[in-house]
């Protein structure tokens, strides 16, 4: 198979370049990540992140043939050749396919991604009814891979101010949690031209989420909650 990969070494390169590779995949190579691992045995200067190799850790997000995805969840079968691999769009490139996620995680932390509850804790745990627990489905599964935020045009234009789909999905995860008591504060924080309202419902985020989640739907629900709050 043929691949064309974005290369940039900050120590030697002034500008990024594309490098072509020829690779003969072996029988067990099913996913794009397998091919990349094999490629690394040929050219060990090629850099990319990976860990779990099964869509759990969120570290091998990249732009694959123009769309964001996880290499470990992308089957080799059906990939158009040459397979063009680039780092996540709009993120500063550290080296090759590795991007700087500092800002992405800063947005994540800004929405206070933990339960806030000042009431006296019960003797055992805070219980949820099955219906309350059900509300977290489609939200808690996010692995913070950044496929969505890095595919969102609104995030490209204002990466420092717009929280982005990943952070907003997480924000809604805590807004929906029956055990969290800070909903009003969370909503007040999000009611901002930049933080929430840069989203134009383009839905690029939902298009590329490798976990099949829908940040655009979470954003829609946050907006509705804001309208209800203020009316």
């Amino acid at each position: 198979m043929r691949l064309s990969i974005y290369r940039f070494n900050p120590e030697t390169d002034l500008k990024p370049r594309m490098q072509d590779y020829e690779l003969a995949p072996e029988a067990g190579d099913k996913k794009l990540l397998d091919a990349l691992m094999r490629l690394k045995t040929i050219d060990d200067s090629l850099s990319f992140r990976r860990s779990c190799r099964e869509g759990v850790c969120g570290s091998d997000a990249m732009n694959i043939n123009g769309r964001n995805g996880l290499a470990c969840l992308t089957p080799l079968i059906g990939l158009k050749e040459p397979v063009v691999l680039r780092p996540l769009p709009g993120f500063p490139v550290i080296r090759d396919l590795i991007v700087d996620m500092t800002q992405f995680f800063a947005h994540y932390h800004s929405i206070k991604p933990y339960l806030i509850n000042d009431t006296v804790p019960p003797e055992r745990e805070r219980l949820q009814s099955p219906a309350e627990r059900e509300k977290l489905n489609g939200l808690y599964e996010c692995i913070l891979c950044a496929c969505c935020s890095s595919f969102c045009p609104s995030f490209w234009w204002n990466p420092d101010k717009f929280i982005g789909p990943a952070g907003l999905l997480q924000a809604y995860r805590f807004i929906s949690d029956s055990r969290d008591t800070a909903t009003a504060e969370r909503l007040a924080y999000l009611d901002d031209v930049y933080r929430l309202f840069r989203c134009r419902t383009i839905m690029n985020c939902t298009e590329v989420c490798p976990k099949g989640l829908s940040p655009s739907h979470a954003i829609e629900r946050i907006r509705q909650a804001l309208v209800r709050e203020s009316s």
Partner: peptide, 8 residues
Amino acid sequence: FLGQRAWV
């Protein structure tokens, strides 16, 4: 005109 108002 910030946030929600403009959107509404």
